[in-house]
């Protein structure tokens, strides 16, 4: 009993230590830190949207500007086809893009981690079936499936997150599965099985804590993919029609022919924001990965 708590405290301390060590490593990774800074700025912008840009600016009927006006003092990034300030749209759009991205990631990571853990942990046919299923889902091309799902489910903010979530989990599942397999190989899981821990105990106490860091790194990479997907689906008109996101701005721009009129201020900023955010998530994810996996560190 007391030996057990002692061991647990030791394990916890060791874990805290390794997190601290990881953070030190992370800080040394310059591109990872740059990504983290950019992300912080965007998150602050999204949270502070009501303070820095009046929500009235989103209304088509109360728009004050002219059609596709080029940037000026009053409209630093010009106006859209309804006379709204592009800057206001951009700031408010960051909320939807980030929100959908995070929501989709949560769904994707939940499914992926569960399937990966179970298929890696349970040998025999249950594991094999889950593995097969993962492989099959990997084969289904993302965009066509997402289009079909979005058509079938209808267009709303939650639905688009669901669509992205349920189409993007197999990669995570494979990763978690292989990690689980290798943890299972390690002696101490065997030992605690010999001492008679149930499956639930083993998964929760031994396997999960060890795959968590990997899940964490994978999450940031998944957010990147999810935000890209949100942008593309919204661009194709599958997003929530009542909300502004970076993708829906680009859809607007494309549909009203902002390209032929040369209204670059309507096309460049939303895309640039997507690239910055996605790139930052990717860089942070890679930095996390290399902190967790020294073998990868050598190659970047």
């Amino acid at each position: 009993m007391s030996a057990g708590t002692e061991a647990r405290r030791l394990a916890r301390r060791r874990r805290a230590q390794s997190w601290r060590h990881g953070w030190r490593e992370f800080r040394r990774n310059r591109s990872g830190m740059a990504g983290a800074v950019v992300l912080t700025l965007f998150v602050v912008m999204a949270l502070a949207a009501p303070l820095i840009a009046d929500a009235d600016g989103l209304s088509v009927t109360r728009a004050t500007g002219g059609v596709l006006e080029s940037p000026s003092g009053a409209y630093p990034l010009g106006t859209d086809d309804n006379g709204r300030s592009v800057l206001t749209l951009l700031i408010w759009g960051s909320r939807i893009s980030l929100l959908v991205g995070l929501l989709a990631t949560v769904i994707s990571i939940l499914i992926g981690t569960t399937v990966g853990l179970l298929s890696g942990y349970f040998g025999g046919w249950p594991g094999a079936v889950l593995f097969r299923l993962t492989e099959w889902f990997l084969v289904i091309p993302f965009l066509p499936l997402a289009i079909v799902l979005a058509t079938v489910l209808g267009r709303s903010l939650v639905n688009i997150a669901i669509v992205i979530g349920v189409t993007s989990w197999p990669g995570t599942a494979l990763l978690i599965r292989s990690q689980t397999l290798s943890i299972k190989q390690r002696a101490y899981v065997d030992r605690s099985r010999a001492l008679g821990g149930g499956h639930g105990h083993l998964l929760a106490r031994h396997v999960l804590p060890n795959v968590m860091p990997l899940v964490f790194a994978n999450t940031t990479l998944t957010v990147a993919v999810a935000i890209l997907s949100e942008t593309t689906l919204s661009f194709l008109g599958l997003g929530d029609p009542t909300r502004v996101s970076w993708g829906s701005m680009l859809q607007d721009a494309f549909q009203v022919g902002a390209i032929t009129t040369g209204s670059w201020w309507f096309i460049v900023p939303p895309g640039l924001c997507v690239v910055l955010v996605v790139l930052s998530f990717t860089l942070v994810g890679q930095a996390l990965e290399s902190v967790l996996n020294p073998r990868l560190r050598e190659r970047r």
Binding site: T232, L250, G262, I267, G271, V274, V278, T282
Partner: peptide
Amino acid sequence: SLTVYSMPEWWLGLLLIA
């Protein structure tokens, strides 16, 4: 590569058209 990877390819297309 990483930058292009983070870019929706159709947006790149829009820029090229413009």
